[in-house]
Design a protein around this nucleic acid. Structure first.
Length: 411
RNA sequence: GCCUGGGUGGGGUAGCUGGUCAUCCUAUGGGACUGUGGAUCCUACGACUCGGGUUCGAAUCCCGACCCGGGCCCCA
């Protein structure tokens, strides 16, 4: 084999594509029913779009290149930034909120593993113009429903970065980011060393460690005792009430940080079993990116589902498409084409292009799993009809072309 | 970037304590059967991932690369 597909990429054969399309359509269906409109952004963007929000550090994971005009281009590693870029570029004056969904491929230069590829697919939604608890609850509920539509159920972890950020607000911005990164990695040792390094006040230090360790039902109460009755906590409480209204089960986890500077309020992650180390199938939260791209400060909320990971664990089995094969003899090939064309207005029709003999055509129809065969022969044509053969029962009836479509679509 | 297991025709495999034309199944093309399928028979096609090394001789042993799986790191 001289040429093979690049590492971390995949080919999808018809059987697999049928499954993927099926799941994709289920998720689309959910998004449509929640009133979201589909959007599509370019496969590649200027690299600054991604370095701006995440720093130079991510360059190692980005597929980038210089185009012939000497522009630094990147294959998108995710879709939130492109969506917000699109908003800033052409939608800032439209009625809020904007509710979008997308399904597209993304690219990251990482070591391939189970549920991790260099070209992978994300299904995501964004609400632009609202970071209120109502939209936070809505996206979480929608994420759950999307997963459910694919037959997948996971554990929801919900946190709020506003609480930790309020605690850290007097520190340098750069230090805040570093701290959030340590929190995200759950690297307590590194965090401790860093706090030593910047000589953080003992009070903040103690509260920080207790805060990010808070889990479960009493987490909000304990957080309030630590940092006072701040807005972030009020908002978080409202969110949790709404999640109850949606009937969701969740785990409060104030240790979720998502490592990203632009997340500002709620953050959530959904985990599933059966995926090894890549058990996170969905992540999202409230963020502020617009002003970073030159727009007005605009609160937004969204999430992205790791579509490939869903495909690893979902058990959707779309039924095989029913296929009709039109078979003919050497002296009726042209008539068969005409009849196939007519049938295609109603059903999916497969016709021999190998110049096979009659018997081999039937044999081939059998190997590709045809449910019915339409036989176009002299005898039938003389009677103005065709023979419809049921490949399962072997029964064969003489009918008109119109009747074929009726009988098939009836099944 | 690190650790670990593995790569034999399109798919699945035997061989892998070095030595006959590399085994078998399946799939695929052609043919027999000449207006009725899954069978059978004949025939064709087709592989030791790649590159070095050891050896008289390597699919087999050694090294490296590439790729796949699993576990880490990371995951914007």
């Amino acid at each position: 084999m001289e040429v093979q597909r690049p590492r971390g990429t995949r080919d999808f054969l018809p059987e697999e594509m049928a499954k993927r399309k099926n799941v994709e359509n289920r998720m689309r269906h959910v998004a449509q029913h929640w009133g979201y409109g589909e959007i599509k952004t370019p496969t590649f963007e200027h690299i600054e779009l991604f370095t701006l929000k995440s720093g130079e550090g991510i360059l190692g994971e980005i597929y980038n290149f210089k185009d012939k005009g000497d522009r630094e281009i990147a294959l998108r590693p995710e879709l939130t930034a492109p969506v917000i870029r699109m908003y800033v570029e052409e939608l800032q004056r439209s009625a809020k909120p904007l509710k979008f969904y997308y399904f597209d491929n993304c690219f990251r230069y990482e070591r391939p593993q189970k549920g991790r590829f260099r070209e992978f697919f994300q299904f995501g939604v964004e609400i632009i113009g609202s970071g209120r608890p109502e939209s936070e609850a809505e996206v979480i509920a929608m994420a759950v429903e999307m997963l459910k539509s694919a037959g997948v159920q996971g554990d929801i972890h919900v946190g709020n970065l506003g609480i930790v950020r309020t605690l850290l607000k007097d520190l340098e911005v750069e230090h805040q980011s570093r701290i959030m990164r340590y929190v995200d990695k759950k690297d307590d040792k590194g965090l401790e060393d860093f706090l030593d390094h910047i000589q953080a006040p003992d009070e903040i230090r103690g509260k920080l460690f207790r805060l990010i360790g808070l889990r479960g039902e009493n987490a909000v109460h304990e957080a309030r005792e630590l940092v006072g009755d701040i807005d972030a906590i009020k908002q978080f409480e409202t969110l949790l009430e709404l999640l109850d209204v949606y009937g969701l089960e969740y785990l409060v986890d104030l240790g979720i940080a998502r490592g990203l500077d632009y997340y500002t309020g709620m953050v959530f992650e959904i985990y599933c079993e059966g995926l090894g180390a890549q058990n996170q199938v969905c992540g999202g939260g409230s963020y502020r990116l617009a002003q970073l791209f030159g727009g007005e400060d605009t609160p937004s909320t969204g999430y992205a589902i790791g579509f490939d990971r869903i495909m690893e664990i979902c058990e959707v089995k779309p039924e095989a498409p029913r296929r009709i094969v039109v078979v003919s003899f050497d002296d009726t090939r042209k008539e068969a084409i005409v009849i196939a064309q007519k049938l295609r207005e109603q059903v999916s029709v497969y016709i021999d292009v190998m110049g096979r003999k009659f018997k081999d055509q039937i044999s081939h129809a059998n190997t590709i799993g045809a449910s019915h065969v339409v036989i176009v022969g002299k005898n039938e044509l003389d009677a103005g009809k065709v023979a419809l053969k049921d490949m399962k029962t072997g029964e064969q009836v003489l009918v008109t072309v119109e009747e074929v479509a009726e009988r098939i679509t009836d099944l």
